[in-house]
Amino acid sequence: MTVVGIDCGAKNVKALILEEDKILAKSSVLSGFDQKAAAQEALDLVLKDASLKKEDLAHITATGTGKEEVGFSLGTITEVGANAKAINSLFPSVRTVIDVGAEEGRAIKINDKGKVIDFAINEKCAAGAGTFTETMARALEIKLEEMGSLSLKSQKAVPMNAQCAVFAESEVVSLIHAKHAKEDIVRAVHDAIADRIASMVRKIGIEKDVALVGGVARNIGFVDSLKRDLNLDLLIPDDPEFSCALGAAFAAAEKAKGG
């Protein structure tokens, strides 16, 4: 049985084809200003990659902030529910899932069966999610992908006061003018966002093991800051940004089986 999980995120639409427990293909497309079109493109890409047609699919489940935009899906699942399913399958020992995407951060507490016990969300404020790092990268004139490794070179972070991405932009510019090393500023940026994510996680109570997913988990500088703040190790899947899509695919498979 072949199913598709599609995660319509604020920045990227991710699609994934699952055949039984095997991932056949994955795709990621920029959401741009037309999530509907991006979702279609992401679906077309995975189908092409797996040499399949839409008719071959037993079910399609959508998740992500734009899940209602996905015209061709047969069902939806919340991002919290999708992450719980995916992580319970990838790392059964995990009880706390942290998901940091472009515009939202989530902390989810799950039991050994992957059932959601509690969750907290940071949303509607750029300071609490990946957009913050991206905005700072632009102010620093550094590529987003370079932020992580640069951050690890820092010996000490400079203090940063702004709690708003717009105000932090100007603070970063004045830190550059004050001749602070870029790596120290980058580290301060990661420490700041990690601090906000960590306090959201503490709201639900941290229970080990802890997994980190979402696109921002690719940023090794952020991961380092978050580990330091929480003072524990984090399990990160190989493709952390596909966690939600994988969970949606599991949900699709359950639906197709009549579950």
Binding site: K124, C125, A126, A165
Partner: peptide
């Protein structure tokens, strides 16, 4: 969006 960063991308 209330957030200026998000409002800006909405405006774009």
């Amino acid at each position: 969006s209330t957030c200026v960063i998000f409002a800006k991308s909405e405006a774009v």
